[in-house]
């Protein structure tokens, strides 16, 4: 039977928080344990980036506006002060990163389609993580372009109809195959 006691984590020196208590898990025979190292045990601590240069929080907030999601995640993990500045945006920053890293295999095609409509960052993240979706879209774009060319250059309606039929049939077969690949990935 496990006995668990979880205290507040040992704070980094730069946060100037008092106490600590550490994180302690006592477990039964044969169970591995996790201990948080006590303060003053020669643990290297990162310097707070808020110390230099000295900028007002609102200035930092303005700078963060220009950062891409990857760098914003680094900022969230850099220090408590910066993390607090980005608290309101934390979910949206993490969301696009999740779509990029973890959407494959966990979200259905239907859900991915909905997420592509959320905003540009989400759309790019999904297309990056799911190249098949991107490929289908490229085929569709090429098909639309070809249809425009055929309609512009082939005057005979019957010939145009036959050419478009052949082209659609060929592309549809490819799109069906790609959709099948996506469905298998998603099951």
């Amino acid at each position: 039977m496990m006995e668990e006691e979880v205290g507040s984590p040992i704070p980094a020196k730069r946060t100037k928080l008092s106490g600590g208590g550490g994180f302690k898990i006592q477990s039964g025979k044969g169970e591995d344990q996790v201990f948080e190292v006590k303060q003053g045990q020669n643990v290297p601590v990162l310097e707070s980036p808020t110390m230099e240069p000295m900028l007002l929080p609102e200035i930092w907030a303005q700078i963060f506006e220009y950062l891409p999601p990857d760098d914003l995640i680094t900022v969230i993990n850099t220090c408590p002060e910066w993390r607090k500045l980005l608290e309101a945006k934390r979910k949206s920053i993490l969301f696009s990163k999740l779509l990029e890293n973890c959407s494959r295999g966990y979200l259905s095609i239907e859900t991915l389609k909905v997420c592509r409509q959320l905003n540009k960052t989400c759309k790019e993240a999904i297309d990056l993580a799911n190249p098949v979706i991107h490929l289908i879209i490229r085929i569709q774009e090429g098909m639309a372009r070809d249809i425009r060319d055929i309609e512009a250059n082939i005057q005979d309606l019957e010939v145009r109809r036959r050419v478009l039929y052949c082209m659609r049939r060929k592309r549809s077969s490819l799109i069906k195959k790609l959709s099948l690949i996506m469905s298998k990935q998603d099951m």
Partner: peptide, 13 residues
């Protein structure tokens, strides 16, 4: 010894 981004260290087997 596993150390987090904010300097907290965990001793793990």
């Amino acid at each position: 010894r596993v150390i987090s981004s904010d300097g907290a260290a965990f001793l793990v087997s």
